[in-house]
Design a protein around this nucleic acid. Structure first.
Length: 271
DNA sequence: AATTCTCGCAACCGCGGTTAT
DNA sequence: AATAACCGCGGTTGCGAGAAT
């Protein structure tokens, strides 16, 4: 059953690539384009596994790679993106044209970590090194339920008394506001549009802004490449809040079944 | 000049999700 | 439906180059 292996492990080269191997790989991809890594080594006459070829091409041979030193602007962008995404190097690389995830990962571990430590900032948490551990809670992800849908309000109506409801709603609104402020304070000039596409690329109209300062961007599911999937609801949740006569309307998304007005990327699983 | 240490980076490894058989 | 390979990602390792002793 199952597939047949792409190559015989015993007859593949390992270690550093030779100039000849590079030339063969580049020539083949120029002629046939990127495609099935599985069949590429044999077709290109390389004694390498497809995985190795892919890595060599993506990290070293691709013609659109920038190479060279990182600029100060790139440094700062990496730091900001890392504070939001954690070690999601491929997502970070997606925002830095010409840079690879491997390159950014290496650069982070060799330069930026030290740079942040010199600034007295913990590279893992992006908080001051001497800050008490109690603050840690703020960096963990919580899909805080910041809004309540009409349906939920109806179903909860018989359970939650009006006064408690008011407290819960104002409390979640406070959390929402606070988290929003934290992100803005840390990254005042950061475009939070974290889609993998090019920054200038227009997005389909049905995608409501996920969380940006006015520019159109994707819902969270879409920004992860889940467009039109079951996880992409892009449903705007509108709720009428408060029993004291004050009415507020908020928007959010139903991502993976969790209603979320403000999603903190740091809450995504960080290894 | 020789040796040891440190750093930077390319490549490998292992894992989880996806896909072909 | 089950199985096994592919694909892509993040973590780790190994090696060469330069610095320090």
């Amino acid at each position: 059953m199952g597939r047949s292996p792409c190559c015989e492990k015993a007859h593949t080269n390992k270690g550093a690539w030779t100039k000849e191997e590079d030339d063969r790989l580049v020539a083949y991809i120029r002629a046939h384009g990127e495609g099935c890594w599985r069949s590429l080594p044999k077709a290109a006459g390389l004694l390498r596994c497809g995985k190795s070829c892919r890595l060599r091409w993506i990290n070293y041979l691709r013609p659109d790679l920038k190479r060279g030193n990182f600029t100060e602007a790139e440094d700062e962008l990496i730091i900001k993106l890392h504070s939001l995404l954690g070690n999601k190097w491929s997502l970070i690389a997606g925002r830095l044209p010409g840079r690879t995830d491997n390159e950014i990962k290496n650069y982070w571990n060799t330069h930026i970590r030290r740079k942040l430590l010199n600034r007295g900032i913990d590279p893992a948490t992006h908080r001051p090194l001497n800050e008490p551990a109690a603050q840690e809670a703020a960096t963990t992800i919580s899909f805080t339920k910041t809004t309540t849908s009409v349906l939920e309000e109806e179903s909860l109506g018989s359970i939650i008394k009006e006064e408690n409801k008011e407290k819960i709603i104002s409390a979640t609104a406070f959390v929402c506001k606070e988290e929003e402020t934290q992100v803005q304070e840390r990254c005042p000039d950061l475009n939070l549009e974290l889609g993998i596409s090019l920054p200038s690329q227009n997005q389909p109209d049905h995608h409501q802004p996920f969380k940006t300062g006015g520019s159109r961007s994707l819902c969270f599911a879409c920004s992860l490449g889940l467009q039109n999937s079951k996880d992409c609801s892009c449903t705007v949740i509108v709720s009428t809040v408060g029993s004291s006569g004050s009415t507020s309307t908020k928007t959010g998304y139903d991502f993976l079944g969790m209603k979320s007005g403000v999603l903190d990327y740091r809450s995504l699983e960080m290894k």
